[in-house]
Amino acid sequence: MMAIVREHELHQRRRKRNAILGLVLAAFVAMVFGITLVKMQNTRAAMSDAENSRPAQAEASE
């Protein structure tokens, strides 16, 4: 009869699978964070462009 061992090869394979999945999820979180920074940067740039063009428009209308 086969002895009951704590660490079956199956558990090692699952640990590997879970580790890869963990890395994928961490990379996904990092990417979403990066996208958020880029989007915020773009929004800020668009807002400052709009603010800069406002005095020029006011001068032109005067």
């Binding site: 394979r13 590997k16 890869i20």
Partner: peptide
């Protein structure tokens, strides 16, 4: 389950 996986002899890997 462990029983099913062990009986089939192959558990799905990430690949």
């Amino acid at each position: 389950s462990d029983v099913n996986a062990a009986s089939k002899g192959r558990d799905a890997e990430f690949g």
